[in-house]
Design a protein around this nucleic acid. Structure first.
Length: 273
DNA sequence: ATGGTCGTTTCACGA
């Protein structure tokens, strides 16, 4: 099964690229962020004709997440248990959608940006992450736990090498110790960055600002991640960042991240094949 | 510190 995550910066503006991406990489499940669309605004017909179902929560101007799947879309959840409220419900709730796709629990997450250290949005970001972490650890444990993938734009660069110029971010969000601790708490809870081990090397960035030719100068950040529960991490056999999707006119400011999963181990007692 | 460029039910604001 091939799983991907991509902050598309408007699904309506990018629908042609999304369809081409799904076809080019033969993607089974795509978690998208910043759809900037209510469900009733989404151009779904092209995706449906390609065999995909869509589960989405959204707002016309910001946030918004969706899961696009051709291997099933069951037990859809809009938001996670105990997700903290903030502002308009339509905005607060447009940050997380979960579904079971082909036996894997997939979440598409748009972690709050935080805006600035000290801003109320920054405190909300940390609270949101802490509550998600508690829920996510619960999902990954217990006898009935499905392999779980936390896919999305985390708006956190966990390591200094994940920023083109860490000194330029000395007073910025995305790299502060509390944000990095919030990210680390998922790893401490058993989740694994399933991409970095399979896509090592210097080209780690997933996001480049539109302005000042940041992509052309490779001044980017690594803020999009797939964190896998232990059983999902075991099945991860390959991963890559599709930098080419970020090039050219009409690109999102984020590149897609792709993860390949082996088939699950056969249940005991059943013949192989 | 500022501004650069995108997106949006746009002449303002979020990223």
């Amino acid at each position: 099964m091939r799983l991907a995550t991509w902050n598309v910066n408007s699904l309506r503006a990018r629908i042609g690229r999304v369809e081409a991406f799904l076809e080019r990489h033969d993607v089974d499940v795509l978690a998208v962020q910043e759809t900037k669309a209510r469900e009733d605004q989404l151009p779904l017909m092209g995706l449906q004709s390609m065999g995909y179902d869509v589960a989405a929560v959204g707002h016309s101007q910001w946030n918004g997440v969706a899961i696009i799947s051709r291997v099933g879309l069951d037990d859809v959840a809009e938001g996670f248990p105990d997700m903290p409220p903030w502002g308009e419900p339509a905005v607060a709730e447009a940050r997380a959608v979960g579904a079971t796709c082909g036996g894997v629990r997939v979440w598409s997450l748009y972690v709050p940006n935080g805006r600035a250290v000290g801003d109320p949005h920054y405190a909300y970001k940390l609270e949101w992450l802490a509550r998600l972490r508690d829920a996510a650890v619960a999902w990954a444990t217990g006898p009935d736990a499905l392999p779980t993938a936390l896919c999305g734009d985390w708006n956190i660069a966990p390591q200094d090498d994940d920023v083109y110029d860490i000194a330029a971010y000395a007073t910025s969000t995305h790299v502060t110790p509390p944000e990095r601790a919030a990210f680390q708490a998922f790893l401490d809870g058993g989740y694994v960055d399933v991409v970095r081990p399979h896509a090592p090397g210097p080209e780690v960035f997933t996001y480049w600002d539109y302005y000042r030719q940041r992509f052309e100068r490779n001044r980017g950040m690594r803020i999009d991640f797939v964190l896998g529960s232990p059983s999902l991490a075991e099945r991860t056999c390959a991963a890559r960042i599709d930098r080419e999707e970020r090039a050219g006119t009409g690109a999102s400011d984020h590149a897609p991240v792709i993860v390949d999963l082996d088939d699950p181990p056969a249940p005991p007692g059943e013949p192989a094949g």
